[in-house]
Design a protein around this nucleic acid. Structure first.
Lengths: 354, 354
DNA sequence: CGGACCATTTGACACGTTCCAACCAGGGAC
DNA sequence: GTCCCTGGTTGGAACGTGTCAAATGGTCCG
């Protein structure tokens, strides 16, 4: 309840000038030993705590960076956030984490807030792609780094993962496992991630040549569990002959929904239908049948984004915008294990009757 | 790249004094229409952005609150964070989210940081229970509210959920379902949450009277998926006669691990072993066998915590510390459905799902 | 016409810190 | 003795904003 104590009171208490106290705080080495001790004692007994606002005002910039994400509850972003934070704290910066819930108004409000805070820079996955506002922000002096999206004009740095490659890797793996009827489950394709993964999947299939069938497209309305369940029901309804033997899902939530429905309908995974997901969320490995999944280097993504930001914010004027692209990796688990040669034909029929 | 523009330049550009610009910003109603328009036009053309640091310095306190959690990736905390944020933004406050990873040094550093930022107050789930440091913080003028833990001395407000009741409800449900050999899976019991849930479980069993067996205790080293798997293996090794017919897990991760192991070993859930988890994380419903779970009002917890904080920070001096306790609710799903006397395999679609 | 009143606007100060030029004492070189 | 150097310390000027008493100018009343 006591009024906060300022540097001035500390100075008075230690019988010294404010400038000296400031020096003790910031460059302890240049102040004589006895004085330093006296000041530090005063700080302790008075319970002095620096006023960050005043420092920032003086310095012109705050010692924080803003991180704006679409959904804090999404494991992808929490891991990215961790990476950002690790890197930031190494430079003595702290992170303000902002959650937009994919709502443009919230995003706008947070951007204003961060600019008012004079943050060192902003890391953002924008709600609707790179934006006019971001360019203006940048122009007014706040560096902006795009996370998991790219600037069409190349006027910003960005970090992303190659989703096309991810789709390619996943489907190639299924082809290697001997699958020929492969479904792509996910949507809406208006999402860049979905479109890219689909493109990669198609590419892998085309490379395999005419031996493989076309990709069976099962578009969903969203990337969540219940969409996966519905897709599962749709697959189960198909006559056994047309049913895909493998499904590549645009993300793990969809894959888990699909897996759940398969389990419920007693369609065996991976024997009847193999499944590969995307994102490798924590629960992929914990699923009843551990889920194969394409893993993105999320932590690394965050670290690199923060590094780019520091480079741009602190570096000399000669800053070149860069677009860093990471490669995803496939984590193979039981849900897509290669089929055993025997009895692959008999089982699904039996299941279909049940 | 241009230097940030200050209120002074706006004033010059609009041919008016700084005080007037400030008034336009803060009390637009008291300034005459034409002047206001002129100033606003100047703000726009110059691209003026308020300097939050300067405002805070002047005001003495910042317009933010600190939220310190053990793990941002934990859905419990992300939901709490959402609640906090919803409530805070209604009062025009923003939230600084800090992640301690359960490490005391990180916690200490963040507390310092938040105090230096002169936040309105701090919401915290402390690493090691309520603390001397927190009391000092509070004494120096920064209100502290405990989240999901209680102050032994009653010197702080707190919000929590009744974990004893949660354990009681879960086990009562299993008893109602006709189970008699019930296991408690989780640990270490040194965690307050685990101890409380265990206590509730025991209480329910005792109330049921001598008809029920004792609780079978399976203590785990941690509350994660692999601990659950190991517990599952241990259960599977028991001779069928001693094997519990139901397991109440201290959290959902453990429950999912257990479920996974049961599936792998072809022990049927819920027919052979019923499972109830705790926390009702998103993936509980998405599990191969949808998981019954005790749900805590997490969002509400966050909102209430923020409300208490505002009450203490803004309210008059006469503030009484309060300890709010919420009641958890059991969400019943397939994993603990009452056993049918016969033919459990026949009607999978009878499973009710929300 | 003087005074009173109102609606606006102004100017100066305070907030807590950092930075920098200036100052001081003492010591060594000449 | 003067001069310069060096390690310490000081005082004061910013930084950008909010606040508030005082100034300004106009209108109305008597």
């Amino acid at each position: 309840m006591s009024a906060p104590v300022s540097i001035r009171e500390v100075a008075a208490h230690a019988g010294v000038s404010v400038g000296t106290v400031s020096n003790v705080l910031n460059r302890p080495d240049i102040v004589a030993r006895p004085t330093r001790d006296r000041v530090q004692a005063a700080i302790k007994t008075l319970g002095f705590v620096r006023n960050e606002s005043a420092r920032q005002l003086r310095a012109g910039r705050s010692r924080t960076i803003g991180l704006v994400v679409l959904d804090v509850a999404n494991p992808f972003f929490t891991d990215v956030a961790r990476g950002v934070e690790d890197e930031a704290s190494m430079s003595g910066l702290s992170v303000i984490l902002c959650n937009t819930d994919e709502q443009l108004p919230k995003e706008t409000r947070y951007l204003e807030l961060l600019e008012e805070h004079r943050v060192q820079g902003i890391l953002i996955t924008p709600v609707a792609g790179a934006d006019e506002r971001l360019a203006r922000l940048q122009q007014r002096g706040t560096p902006v780094i795009l996370v998991d999206s790219r600037s069409p004009s190349g006027s910003q740095c960005s970090v992303a993962v190659d989703d096309v490659l991810g789709g390619d890797v996943a489907v190639s793996h299924l082809l290697d496992g001997g699958h020929e009827r492969i479904a792509f489950v996910g949507g809406p394709v208006s999402l860049r991630q979905v479109a890219d993964r689909l493109e990669g999947a198609t590419r892998a299939l085309q490379r395999a040549g005419p031996a493989a069938d076309d990709l069976m497209m099962i578009e969903t309305a969203a990337l969540n569990v219940s969409a996966g369940q519905r897709a599962g029901a749709a697959i189960a309804e198909l006559p056994a002959r047309q049913r895909p033997t493998a499904a590549f899902c645009a993300n793990d939530l969809v894959a888990l929904g699909l897996l759940q429905e398969m389990t419920r309908l007693r369609i065996r995974v991976p024997d009847d239908v193999a499944i590969v997901g995307y994102d490798d969320i924590e629960f992929a490995a914990a699923a009843a049948v551990p889920l194969s999944s394409v893993r993105q280097p999320r932590h690394q993504l965050g670290r690199t984004a923060a590094q780019l930001l520091l480079e741009e914010a602190l570096g000399a004027d000669g800053h070149e915008h860069r677009e860093v692209v990471f490669q995803p990796e496939l984590e193979v688990r039981r849900s897509s294990q290669a089929r055993r040669p025997r009895d692959t034909a008999a089982a699904p029929d039996a299941a279909a009757e049940a």
